[in-house]
Amino acid sequence: MGVLLARGRARRSGNGWWVGRVPGPASRYMDLNWRRVFRMGGVMKRIGTIYLRLASAALALGFSLPSLAAVERWKLNMTPGVTEVSRQVYDIHMTILWICIVIGVLVFGAMAVAIFRFRKSRGAVAATWSHNDKAEVVLTIVPVLILVAMAWPATQVLIHMADTRNAEMTIEVTGYQWKWGYRYVDSDVSFISSLARNSDDTRQLGSGLSPDQVKSYLLDVDRPLVIPADTKVRFVITSGDVIHSWWVPALGWKQDAIPGIINDQWTLVKEPGIYRGQCAELCGKDHGFMPIVVEVKPKTEFAQWLAAQQNPDAAAAAAAIATTAEPVAAAAAPGQG
């Protein structure tokens, strides 16, 4: 599917499927001429086109091929993330999910049995009872006990998450329409992080470019936030205009960025890596286009990076000498899903 999508989007010219060769359902799909579609004008016409394409799309589903890009597709579940907190959140999620599944199997199972056994066509005769006080009491108390069992670990985790004390560094995060501002409060480093150029070009209506060809489409930025590994980092989060929400799933939480209000949260990532997220609160037309990238560096590398930011001239000199690439977005982004 990924390949099919990629080709279909990337192709800028060629005949529409309605006039060209029609070798098979898969290539019909690929040959769709988007330019043509846009020129048809009117939203209504475009919807009509979507309906037309439905049949071929359904067929194309059958021809799914693994995507070339290393993207995890058909993903079903929450990420366990990369912090202690995110793993606790994941565990709670799985616990309540399983409790719900078990209750669901019992209730729906009982329904299935009833639907199968007590049908008139099998000669079932209706009983006349209409209440059973014991059953009502049991079915009130048992759920309460289950709820307590769920609330207990949830409370523990919540208390843990709310403790922002003893942070080793503080970063101020400010949401803007439609980018993020980061400020390292203890040093005077601050910068703006916005959607990476190639994603931005591709996402324009009728760009003719394929999202499959863009690494980390819509999840990449020009300048990622850099934080040290193995350090308790406190975030103070606010906004310069409307409400946004700062969310990196691998860290296990999101927190609203609200003008006039400062919220705080914290994280402690053990392993260096690159973690991606998005704004989660509707903030206007480009709400879908203000991603978040957090790059976690080993402590010493982070210290070097921060020093370089504080003194850009020295950094430039250092970069000229060093043969290793400057580890910011440009170098870090490729290779990531």
């Binding site: 990924g2 999508l5 995507s67 890009a69 993207v71 995890e72 597709r73 993903k75 079903l76 579940n77 929450m78 990420t79 996402r203 999202p211 499959d212 980390s216 489409y217 819509l218 999840l219 969310w247 799933p249 997220g277 998005q278 704004c279 989660a280 509707l282 709400h287 879908g288 286009f289 899903g337």
Partner: peptide, 15 residues
């Protein structure tokens, strides 16, 4: 949602 797709967005990552 569990995989990380926010609501109210018109476009998304290929994942």
């Amino acid at each position: 949602g569990l995989a990380g797709m926010p609501r109210r967005i018109p476009d998304y990552n290929v994942a």
